[in-house]
Amino acid sequence: MSWFRRHPSATAYILLAPGILYLLVFYLYPTAQMFLVSLWTGSPETGYALTGNFGIYPEALAQYSEHLTRSIFYGGAATIVTFLVGFPLAYFIAFRGGRYKSVLLFLVIAPFFTSFLLRTLSWKIIFADNGLALGPLKDAGLLPDTFRLLATPTAVIAGIAYNFLPFMTLPLYVALEKIPPNLLEAAQDLYADGWQRFRRVTLPLALPGVFAGSLLTFIPAVGDFINAELLGDPRSQMIGNVIQARFLRVSDYPTGAALSFILMAAIIIGVLLYARLVGTEELTGGTT
């Protein structure tokens, strides 16, 4: 016991060891491996050799820039949708939830008890061209017969937003929940009206939640491929679909791996810029 007391930093490392080991084995090693794969040349039939073919990066980027920008656009749009839906939801639960708070929070997470895949597949039934949702509207003459939701970019973005909504809502809720009521009272005492109170007190204090929620949504959303595969058409496939097809249909591992790194780099750059713009001191380690 006393040894640990005399070596506080050793204690920290011992506590960190499982996490570090985990990252080494399941993140750094595969990432390094994948990086080497991206530098292979060859074909599945003739075998591959590590040739240090860095030229594959500009090639892959040029060939699939359209998919990349599309993915960033879809991911960004979905993040905005989740924010627009998630913020009022989190606000309501945090400030008006009362004794139903935990029930409401449970309801936000409830869809997660069903497989991601099945929930997305069920959209295919619900939003079929003449299905539960669109059929009656078309029968009533509110929509033209040729209207469709599935196999469109709208469906892909909506599907992503639907699937990632809790990732936005929960951090927002945590941030809003933390706001001390006396700060709001103080604002009121200083003659702030409702809107000013929201804009000058609530929103700034919720920013860490906005930041965390949008990152948690945006990063996986850009790489998502299930929604595009199930709800999109051939023209709305995302970079994740291309990576999947490169690995699983064409067995072109180098291009698949290179695209994975390009995607990673694009996301990291985007996130750093975002952190510069919106990031709060609380998140970057400063003191409030």
Binding site: Q33, L117, L121, F225, Q244, F247
Partner: peptide, 20 residues
């Protein structure tokens, strides 16, 4: 049929996530 679809995409999803 739904499950058939689910199985196929599920397997792909898993694989795409873990690489080669």
């Amino acid at each position: 049929r739904m499950l058939q679809l689910a199985a196929v995409t599920g397997a792909s999803a898993f694989l795409a996530a873990c690489g080669t």
